[in-house]
């Protein structure tokens, strides 16, 4: 089963053509990695999936993105509802300047959950699922800004899973973190893939091999090659993929 199917997607920023004829199928409950050099369009692409690019003036697109068979750019689709179903974790940890508890409870409150007991329960569950509970359970009322970068990123993941999305987009979630925090996030991704469809943009090819089942290689706004991660790194079909993963450029 495919959770997301993208058909002939083109993206433009003013006159620049930055996503070229993207076709990709993202399977259910597994991790798909998007790799490629800086500026190849992978971040722009991932942001079309939860329509974050709508916020950027000058961005337009054509083609279709289907989530469970429904086009997310259909005028009948409610963006707010879409973003509840497709969560996102950003490159730089971006907790709100609120308490740890309020950060995780934020999405729940926004989506109309008011019973304190339910919120409390969901906050705890989410923090546990994000492997952060033991580190913060004593200081839930302290500001999230006092956490380390790695903890902040796991908090952002907890915040995202609290609203129970179907898909989690991760835009280079470890690029601002130290190796130990990176390992923790990767372990977490392994755990989460049983329940969520995860798409991760990464600079780091080792990371792609460690966490993902499928990989797509982006170059100059195109997908050069999509394949099982194992296969792609062992025997790339395209010469450009081979050049990139063997470190000849990028």
């Amino acid at each position: 089963m495919n959770r997301i199917e993208v058909e002939n997607l083109n993206g433009y920023f003013d006159d620049a053509h930055i996503l070229k004829d993207i076709n990709i199928k993202i399977p259910n409950n597994s991790v798909t990695a998007l790799i490629g050099p800086s500026g190849c369009g992978k971040s722009t692409f991932i942001r079309t999936l939860n329509r974050m690019n709508d916020l950027i003036s000058g961005f337009r697109h054509d083609g279709a993105v289907y989530l469970d068979g429904a086009d997310i750019y259909d005028p009948k689709i409610d963006v707010v509802d879409l973003r509840k179903r497709i969560g996102m974790v950003f490159q730089k940890p971006n907790p709100f300047p609120k308490s740890i508890f309020d950060n995780v409870a934020y999405g729940l409150k926004v989506h109309g959950i008011t019973e304190k007991d339910i919120i409390k329960e969901r906050v705890e569950e989410s923090l546990k699922a994000a492997a952060l509970w033991d580190e913060v359970k004593e200081k839930l009322d302290k500001s999230a800004m006092g956490l380390s970068g790695g903890q902040q990123q796991r908090l952002c993941i907890a915040r995202t899973i609290a609203i129970e999305p179907e898909v989690i987009l991760m835009d280079e979630p470890c690029s601002a973190l130290d190796p130990i925090s990176t390992t923790k996030i990767e372990d977490l991704i392994h755990k989460l893939k049983n329940d969520y469809t995860i798409i991760i943009v990464t600079h780091n090819m080792q990371q792609a091999t460690r966490v993902s089942k499928h990989t797509s290689f982006f170059l100059h706004g195109e997908i050069v090659e999509s394949n099982l991660t194992e296969r792609m790194f062992l025997e790339p079909e395209d010469k450009r993929t081979e050049d990139y993963i063997t470190g000849r450029f990028g």
Binding site: V80, G87, F90, N94, Y106
Partner: peptide
């Protein structure tokens, strides 16, 4: 920071909720 706004919108809040709560 723009990242606060993006974080809030990505959680499915409306613009007004983002302004009011974050």
């Amino acid at each position: 920071p723009r990242s606060y706004r993006e974080g809030s919108l990505a959680l499915g809040s409306t613009k007004w909720e983002t302004i009011y709560r974050v």
